[in-house]
Design a protein around this nucleic acid. Structure first.
Lengths: 200, 200
DNA sequence: TACGCTATTGACCAAGCGGTTAATATATAC
DNA sequence: GTATATATTAACCGCTTGGTCAATAGCGTA
């Protein structure tokens, strides 16, 4: 006996929300059509009615995770810092802190990341998001490099290093959460970046 | 009809080798008891006879991957470098190059890493391996910090940053392989670390 | 109120999974 | 050469999965 009807948009949203909750708790392995349907209090047939294939549901969820995680939004108080080097440092710290506030989402992104190794579609979407994220960093890296004479690094290289530093911490922290704390990590980053790219 | 018999050790080794090959090609998702058995040209019942549960097979494979990937062996030519800072730099470059030579194994490790988010046993084993890896780095970081006056970072923090730099590159590279090359990355790392921890 | 459209359900299916077990071929000991 | 122990196989089981589909209940419309 069918239940109440809803518009396409609201039902998709409802299903996606349920999928997100399921994925956070059980991981992508536990992200089954039936589990999502149960979470949304719907029949599993209906989930496949709105998302023709399971892959489409998974990809829609990935898009949501990418938009929430890999979008670089530079706060005004950082954007107005005059010295490029300090601006880069502040942005690094800000991003590490931001990602650290949502460890479960980072874990979910890492799960998709790993599956990207064997799934070209997933790999492509993460690649696009990662590229945009790196590009946003490259601008600031460019300014930092330009401001200092004799810098030997390229903007793209510096941006890639920045991404490594940002995602490296939550990735390590998710394995042993209480092994080292964020302040210690950021202090080391600041100490290293303090004289980047060439000492005064 | 049973086939030829073999000793416990050799058969386990044969199965583990097959499991490794299957996992590299199909990922952990494709690491089924039947796929491993087919790869080893054995019945799938025999695989479960030697590894009582599928988990045990997966954990044995993880141990193998960890031993091959997260073990820090310092070459003599690096160990004999007199200046601690240069030694740290050389070791970083060496490790990035080493991991880059086996991208498939790194991908497999990342798959396990992601599953560690929802599996305490996997998480524990990776945590132990990661800890040992970081500890090996901490010694060199200590010397580098001690050699320079006024360093503000702690050895553990510097070691964690080093790990981020090392694993950050292959992790990014596996998403878009031809986006940036290793030389550009290492150049940026060297430029940043060039004045670590305090400029001369 | 009656009709038509469709979102929704539940039953169903084939495939694949991990795991168990009786039968048996093989190696070993006597 | 015979008996014993066991590594090995193939058939089997119960379960879960993604996916399909006829039946139907809810909703807009006339």
């Amino acid at each position: 006996m069918p239940g109440q009807k809803a518009t396409e948009a609201t039902r998709r949203e409802q299903i996606l929300k349920a999928a997100y909750e399921v994925a956070l708790r059980r991981g992508i392995d536990g992200l089954t059509v039936r589990a999502v349907a149960a979470r949304a209090r719907l029949s599993h047939g209906l989930v496949l009615f709105h998302f023709k294939r399971k892959d489409q549901l998974g990809l829609a969820l990935l898009d949501r995770v990418l938009a929430a995680t890999l979008s670089l939004r530079i706060p005004d108080e950082i954007d107005t810092i005059s010295k490029p080097r300090e601006r880069l440092q502040a942005l690094l710290g800000h991003e590490v802190h931001r990602l650290l506030e949502e460890p479960r989402r980072i874990r979910l992104l890492l799960e998709y990341w790993a599956r990207g190794a064997h799934n070209a579609v997933i790999r492509g979407r993460i690649g696009a998001g990662l590229d945009a994220y790196r590009t946003a960093f490259r601008k600031i890296a460019e300014e930092a490099l330009h401001a200092k004479a004799g810098g030997s690094g390229t903007p793209a290289g510096v941006a890639a290093v920045a991404v490594s530093l940002i995602i490296g911490y939550p990735v390590q922290a998710m394995i042993d959460p209480d092994q080292f704390d964020i302040e210690e990590y950021l202090a080391a980053v600041q100490a290293i970046l303090g004289d980047f790219p060439m000492a005064a």
